[in-house]
Design a protein around this nucleic acid. Structure first.
Lengths: 152, 152
DNA sequence: ATGGAGTCTGTACTCAGATACAGAGTCAAG
DNA sequence: CTTGACTCTGTATCTGAGTACAGACTCCAT
């Protein structure tokens, strides 16, 4: 019986997650410890590490914790769950592709912006140049006061 | 003087954004109307539409409103702003690349999961199969009660 | 001229996700 | 044994982004 169990701190350090976040995920049903010590300390294993890392990655990919929970609870045996999950998955895969496209576009914008910073008057995406026009700065909090003025 | 100005509703419908979200962005300094009517109604133009769309896209790409504000306020004339912005941009471009990689990974995972749903025992990403192990379900809220039990 | 749609400001609320903290028990190195 | 680092539960608070709503004013088509 190899003693490969981790305690809270070991798990969370391995995943760059706070203890309380891990407990939060547990309360939400995303990550259950494999057991408890006699004194009530949570015990985890290597799979927990993978699972927690997956949770964080999915989150960064734009999934909500509820989405992730559904993913993790997917029961391949259950026809019904599977059917509704297929829909969800199709939508998510679609959304993912769109976001990848947007990310690529955004990276391009940032890259030309970055070059503009270096002084190269180069081919700064013209759409963005316009964006850097005059309409910035927090707007005057009292543009045309209402209540009192608001000329009749 | 072409009358190409938009009012709030026209702008926000064109960008699929609520009026109040647009006002929120204004308060935060991301989107200033080009002017006001005599009665205080905000006026926008085509550039505003581009700008607002950019804000939404950047948001979907994982930027916070504060980040976006910094991007939009970038002053190419100002050496100092430019210098610190270069750092920011480099970091953001880097982060973007990483997120694109993660998104691609996630899409692959979802795709094999999707196929597993279709019954194909096929090459379901083994890492994920493990994730679908036993440690799901909201954990027992009272695993080793404290205060009272928590033996001696 | 009137009534419904649009707009204004200001304030309060929601929601997800995360953090902070208090008070109590536990573990292990010196 | 004691002490400092961990861990436990429960509750409260924070943040970022957005929504809801009330009360007032405006616009415009009939």
């Amino acid at each position: 019986m190899r003693q490969s169990h981790l305690k809270m701190g070991e798990l969370t350090r391995a995943c760059h997650v706070s203890d309380q976040a891990a407990r939060l995920y547990e309360r939400m049903g995303l990550l259950k410890p494999v057991g408890r010590t006699a004194k009530g300390y949570r015990l985890y294993d290597a799979e927990s590490v993978e699972r927690l890392r997956f949770i964080k990655q999915a989150q960064r990919s734009g999934f909500s914790l509820e989405d992730i929970k559904a993913l993790l609870h997917l029961d391949l045996q259950d026809e019904l769950t599977c059917a509704s999950m297929k829909d969800l998955l199709d939508r998510k895969i679609q959304a993912l592709s769109e976001r990848m496209k947007e990310l690529a576009d955004m990276r391009d914008v940032l890259q030309s912006l970055r070059q503009a910073c270096d002084g190269e008057p180069g081919p700064l995406c013209p759409a963005f140049l316009k964006l850097c026009g005059p309409q910035c700065a927090p707007s005057d909090p009292n543009p045309a006061r209402r209540k009192t003025p608001f000329q009749r």
